[in-house]
Design a protein around this nucleic acid. Structure first.
Length: 503
RNA sequence: GCCUCGGUAGUUUAGCGGUUAGAAUGCCAGACUCAUAAUCUGGAGGUCGAGAGUUCAAAUCUCUCUCGAGGCACCA
């Protein structure tokens, strides 16, 4: 798409974290995944070469134990769960280009090569790990996890020492600080960046990257008594997902990631370990790491024990997918924590989706159909304002501000509603048919732009909008983001309501 | 304990040195009838957490206090 208002980057590589698949994916997982999907769809639409990667993290003790208790092999267990996850993403209309699993052969191979590289470089050394060990769980626990000398399941823990491999994080501390300083966009939002900076300045300890008790994982290439620490394994999915070793062309086209989205709980791994690991193996650092907030539900922390976990598939059955995708990014400012409540869901539906957006479509299409003809290109002050909004929406994407994107789209709807009110086309049709035609053209073209701007967010409804506007989904020109003559000679046909009220 | 961020109309919030502090929602009144009782206009509602300072000028910068949220590692 060639718009005079927008400059599209040549390529756009966006990622979500790989999700640990011991549980069913909930609101939180879908939040990150849909956010990435919106970006991917937008950049694809404006003409960037997009690669969108998501996937699952499938190694570790939890999986190992869970499989045992179910009488399955770990691989059998994760195959089923990965499949469930893919099904859910399909239901949510996630347009990922690649679904990487840490149990994929290409991933496991890559991890071995990477770890060997780090080792050869001298960044990994054999040392001694000391921690609280639980014999029952065959695992070490952190100070935080231990309560009264007991592990989370209640076994007694003991201080134990064992040989283990460490990565020299400390060696890269100064480099990382300088890198962050020289790349102000690297870590966002600012408040999370500050936290990371103070964390680094407190001094980085070397990181234990081997696990002796975990057999379900990638073996260390230089010592197969151990498997590799989960975060080394997990982070490099962003590289294996690009087929780093199999397809250099793909890698050189997309690397480094332009935007990596995640929840704030794993920001540290992405802002400290990740760039340092990449530096260790001489790879380019991603452009932006962005941490979004957490959702509470009706003011309460979302957790299984409260029984208030929101599952997207359940929500969608009651409402619909586009409402879900819309609500998540309308209700809270991206980056902040948010509160999910049915009351605000209904308010958003009734006030915004129905009254402002749906009704605007409805009234304009009715008016347009009063003259049984098509309309010719015209511009006026509304078309100018709409173009300003197109630029603002683009800015919203570049600033990683999806709330701005949505509110600017609604600004267009407000402007259009007012324009209808001011011009009184229902009178013009009798008093000044020529003016009527001009007003309707401007409105129809405005609706087209609204539909286009909504398409990354509302992956189903925009199709209905296109259909009613007489636009062809497959015609690339129809997605143009500037005020154009596309709506000339288009036969509009009013159909079903876009959204219906919820009581 | 140390560090970071925030406290703006009933509610959610934008603004982060310069015209009467914007918006959405809720409330009140009016207009309109193309439209999903939708839309548009107007109104009420803010000592911009408290205090002090810097400045010609502060919601916006500095300091103190206060309330709230978050971070302080190996989370398998």
């Amino acid at each position: 798409m060639q718009s005079k208002l927008i400059v599209a980057p040549k390529k756009f590589y966006i990622t979500t974290p790989i999700y640990y698949i011991s549980d069913k994916m909930h609101l939180g997982h879908s939040y990150t995944t849909i956010a990435a999907d919106i970006f991917a769809r937008y950049y694809r639409m404006i003409g960037s070469d997009v690669f969108y990667l998501t996937g699952t993290d499938e190694h570790g003790l939890k999986i190992q134990q869970s499989a045992e208790s179910k009488g399955l092999t770990p691989k059998q267990l994760v195959d089923g769960l990965a499949n469930d996850t893919k099904q859910l993403w399909k239901l949510l209309d996630i347009s990922y280009d690649e679904f990487i699993r840490t149990t994929d052969k290409k991933h496991e191979e890559l991890i071995k090569i990477i770890v060997q590289k780090m080792f050869d470089k001298g960044d990994i050394y054999l040392g001694e790990y000391e921690g609280w060990y639980c014999k029952g769980c065959e695992s070490y626990f952190t100070e935080k996890e231990i309560e009264n000398g007991k592990c989370p399941i209640g076994h007694e823990v003991f201080k134990e020492k064992e040989k283990a491999y460490f990565f020299k994080l400390s060696k890269y501390q100064e480099w990382l600080l300088q890198y962050i300083e020289e790349h102000p966009e690297f870590l966002q939002p600012q408040t999370r960046k500050n936290e990371m900076l103070s964390f680094i300045k407190n001094g980085l300890d070397d990181l234990c990257i081997s696990r002796e008790a975990v057999s379900w994982g990638v073996k260390l290439p230089f010592d197969d008594k151990y498997t590799v620490y989960v975060w080394v394994d997990a982070l490099f999915n962003y590289l294996s997902g690009l087929d780093y070793f199999e397809n250099k062309e793909k890698y050189s086209k997309y690397w480094p990631p332009d935007l990596q989205l995640m929840g704030k709980e794993i920001f540290r791994f992405h802002t400290i370990y990740w760039p340092i690991f990449l530096k260790s193996v001489d790879l380019e650092i991603p452009k932006i790491e962005f941490a979004h907030g957490w959702w509470t539900v009706e003011g309460q922390k979302m957790s299984k024990s409260f029984g208030n976990v929101i599952y997207p598939d359940v929500f969608i059955e009651e409402y619909d997918l586009d409402t879900y995708r819309y609500y998540l990014f309308r209700e809270v400012s991206f980056g902040e924590d948010g509160s999910f409540s049915i009351k605000t869901v209904k308010e958003r539906i009734n006030n915004e989706l129905v009254a402002t957006l749906g009704n605007l479509f409805s009234r304009v299409l009715t008016l347009a159909q009063k003259r049984e003809k098509t309309f010719t290109y015209f511009t006026d002050e509304l078309s100018e304002k709409v173009e300003e909004k197109i630029a603002e929406i683009h800015k919203g994407y570049t600033q990683i501000n999806l709330s701005k994107v949505i509110s600017e789209i609604f600004e267009i709807c407000f402007l259009a509603n007012k324009y209808v009110q001011d011009n009184k086309p229902w009178e013009l049709i009798n008093t000044d048919p020529e003016k009527f035609d001009q007003v309707i053209y401007v409105l129809l073209e405005t609706l087209r732009i609204v539909a286009v701007e909504l398409s990354p967010i509302m992956t189903k409804k925009y199709k209905i909008m296109f259909d009613q506007l007489g636009l062809d989904l497959d015609d690339k020109n129809n997605y143009l983001l500037e005020f154009s003559n596309i709506m000339e000679n288009k036969k509009v046909k009013k159909g079903e309501y876009l959204f219906v009220k919820k009581e």
